[in-house]
């Protein structure tokens, strides 16, 4: 009896992954069958098709590029902002895009993307996601550059290190875990994004989330399940490596 709440929690939390795992291999799983009447690999075989590879490749490239660029830029910017007297005023602006609904933000930005002829193109979606994720990275690293790290930097300068040595031999090695954490969290924000990618991408930049939505609209449950499995795969791998990668912690 004491185990009941935990067992219920395990069932509830594992249910999505089990369901999509089954649905991705199910053949002709129609109402009112509770269990698939047969099994097939045909939904997965479609993965070999050009469109699939393109969607997965697009999502992966977007997430890797957004994660890499936003983390690097955010780290560098937060270093400067953390030393500014008016840092907190600057940071107010970083909170806003972090909390703004991505789809509404994307509609607000769409005019500029249309004018620059970036809408409906990969670089446009990449830039849109960078605009969304970069403030998150700045907020993330702002609390990372605390008194201890600033004193460590000052000590390195006192001991004769140049700016390049301070960055490459002190700040970056000390911040490696935080850099990895930020990279993977932004990777996931980009990987999970549907609202911004669909508005700025105009449906032409067909990421995995856009593909899932399209399959659901076409009532193609098998392909939607395969896409859902693919979408869940990177976060599950990250969970296996380190649980902390999944839980966002932003403090001011």
């Amino acid at each position: 009896m004491r185990r009941l709440p935990f067992i219920a929690l395990v069932l509830l939390f594992a249910l999505p992954f089990v369901y999509f795992g089954v649905a991705a291999f199910a053949d002709q799983w129609r109402f009112p069958a509770l269990w698939p009447p047969g099994w097939t690999l045909q939904h997965w075989a479609a993965l070999g098709g050009g469109q699939w590879g393109q969607s997965a490749g697009l999502s992966l490239s977007l997430a890797l590029l957004t994660g890499g660029i936003a983390t690097a830029l955010g780290f560098w910017t937060a270093h400067g902002l953390s030393q500014s007297k008016h840092a907190r005023r600057w940071l107010l602006w970083a909170y806003f895009p972090y909390a703004f609904s991505p789809v509404i933000y994307a509609h607000g930005l769409k005019f500029f993307f249309n004018s620059a002829q970036l809408a409906g193109q990969f670089p446009g979606v990449l830039l849109g996601q960078l605009i969304l994720c970069y403030p998150f990275a700045v907020l993330f690293f702002f609390s990372h550059f605390d008194q201890r790290l600033r004193e460590m930097e000052a000590l390195s300068y006192t001991l004769g290190a140049g700016p390049r040595a301070v960055w490459w031999r002190v700040l970056l090695p000390v911040s490696r875990p935080a850099l990895l954490l930020c990279f993977f969290q932004i990777f996931l924000i980009s990987w999970f994004d549907y609202g911004l990618s669909s508005v700025i991408g105009l449906g032409q930049v067909r990421t995995l989330t856009v593909a899932v939505y399209q399959y659901i609209m076409e009532a193609n449950a098998g392909l939607a399940a395969v896409s859902a499995c693919l979408l869940c795969l990177p976060p599950l791998v990250l969970l296996w490596v380190n649980q902390g990668f999944l839980q966002k912690k932003v403090e001011i």
Partner: peptide
Amino acid sequence: RPIFYLPLALPPLVAAVLSLQ
């Protein structure tokens, strides 16, 4: 402990699709 983190691996769109199913 990983069980408690499991739902964080679920994208909102996939959660919505699951509810639909």
